[in-house]
């Protein structure tokens, strides 16, 4: 799984490279554009995701300690958090659509008043990065649901809980990516 996480780092890394390059080319544009992102929603999402990482780590801990029922419950909380994250994201996206803050060719400056000619780039990156991240949230959720099902079936004990741990690692990576996405997109301009 660690090897697979390496590939995920490289995959997202490409997007971060693009972000860094364009940021260095157009710093004022980033500054102007990022104000159109809702910091509060972003911060709440950050806290939700960190909390879900905590519950997932605890779920793994419970599996290690031969407590499948508790493990199951902590994983369930993790899933709830993930859903909350996605719902908030949905509202953010909806808001963007209304403001015409869309990628590239669909960017509508008339609706949002951003005058920089390259402003659409910021939102292209925003949607690509958060979109790919959201996709990974969904994948992570499916993994956790699968592991929850296996837990209920009694597949795991303190000698064998590898799938729980592996899904946990994947989930933590999803959190890790968000830990960088949040300041880069929402906070710094």
């Amino acid at each position: 799984m660690w090897l697979f996480l390496v590939t995920e780092v490289m995959l997202f890394g490409g997007l971060f490279v693009a972000y860094i390059i364009f940021r260095n080319l157009y710093p004022e544009m980033y500054h102007e554009a990022h104000h159109h992102l809702n910091k509060v929603m972003g911060a709440i999402n950050t806290i939700v995701l960190i909390f879900s990482s905590w519950t997932m780590a605890t779920a793994v801990g419970m599996a290690q300690r031969n407590e499948p029922k508790k493990s199951f419950r902590y994983m369930a909380v993790t899933i709830v958090c993930a859903c909350v994250f996605l719902v908030i994201k949905f509202f953010e996206y909806e808001h963007k659509f209304h403001e015409g803050l869309l990628p590239g060719g669909y960017f509508d400056a008339a609706k949002n008043g951003l005058t920089h000619p390259k402003a659409d780039l910021f939102f292209s990156l925003y949607f690509m990065m958060t979109g790919l991240h959201g996709l990974h949230v969904l994948v992570g959720m499916s993994l956790i649901v699968w592991v929850m099902w296996r837990t209920k079936r009694g597949d795991f004990n303190s000698h064998y809980y590898t799938p729980v741990e592996m899904s946990g690692l994947y989930w933590h990576l999803v959190d890790l990516i968000w830990i960088y996405l949040f300041p880069l997109l929402y906070l710094i301009g």
């Binding site: 590939t7 995920e8 490289m10 995959l11 997202f12 890394g13 490409g14 997007l15 693009a18 364009f22 157009y26 990628p103 590239g104 060719g105 669909y106 000619p117 390259k118 659409d120 780039l121 292209s124 990156l125 949607f127 690509m128 790919l132």
Partner: peptide
């Protein structure tokens, strides 16, 4: 290989959604 993965995705998105990252007219 993951980097060609993201590159292909970006190219596809560029064609479908016109994200503009590689297109000079859109700032890329």
């Amino acid at each position: 290989t993951p980097v060609i993965g993201i590159t292909m995705v970006l190219l596809a998105m560029e064609r479908i959604l016109k994200i503009g990252i590689f297109d000079a007219k859109l700032g890329g």
